[in-house]
């Protein structure tokens, strides 16, 4: 499942770049996510998904696969598995920052992959749910970058 987002923030490309590279800022924006450890380009953490009666907790790790400041390109990969073995989830987020007037344009392409029970029993809802979670994540990032700009 590939999801695309585009937004602009009123901060310079350099500032935006710095924030995108600050995991402590980026990760908590993802609904239910928390960081347990950061080590250079790598991190571990968990994502809790709670939807009415359904509760899942993905524990996993991720890393910056690519940080090309010149091209303004960041690729973050993360994957985890549900603590009860219900399934695995993975995401590759590719963000490309370009100058747009005073601010910065951000193109985000997310490749999401959710397997196991949530996909098997979710009546297709997992797609909408992931989409919503990603919307919230990017809205939060955008807000943070806008606030601090």
């Amino acid at each position: 499942m590939q999801l695309e987002h585009h937004f602009e923030v009123p901060a310079s490309r350099a500032e935006t770049w710095a924030r995108f590279n600050d995991l402590e800022q980026v990760v908590p924006c993802f609904p239910g996510a928390s960081l347990t450890e950061v080590d250079g380009d790598e991190f571990t953490g968990s994502v809790k998904v709670k939807l009415g009666p359904i509760s899942l907790q993905y524990n996993g790790s991720g890393r910056y696969v690519e940080r090309d400041e010149a091209a303004g390109r960041i690729v973050i990969e993360a994957s985890g598995k549900d603590r009860r073995g219900n399934g695995n989830a993975g995401a590759t987020v590719t963000a490309v920052l370009t100058e747009a007037g005073e601010g910065t344009a951000v193109e985000v392409v997310t490749e999401m992959d959710i397997g196991g029970k949530p996909a098997q029993f979710g009546r297709g809802m997992i797609q909408s749910i992931s989409n919503k979670m990603l919307d919230k994540f990017l809205a939060c990032i955008r807000e943070k970058m806008t606030d601090s700009a």
Partner: peptide, 14 residues
């Protein structure tokens, strides 16, 4: 199956 190979019709609900 979805592209990842998860059976989307994995119960009598689907």
């Amino acid at each position: 199956y979805d592209d990842s190979g998860t059976l989307l019709t994995g119960s009598f609900t689907e």
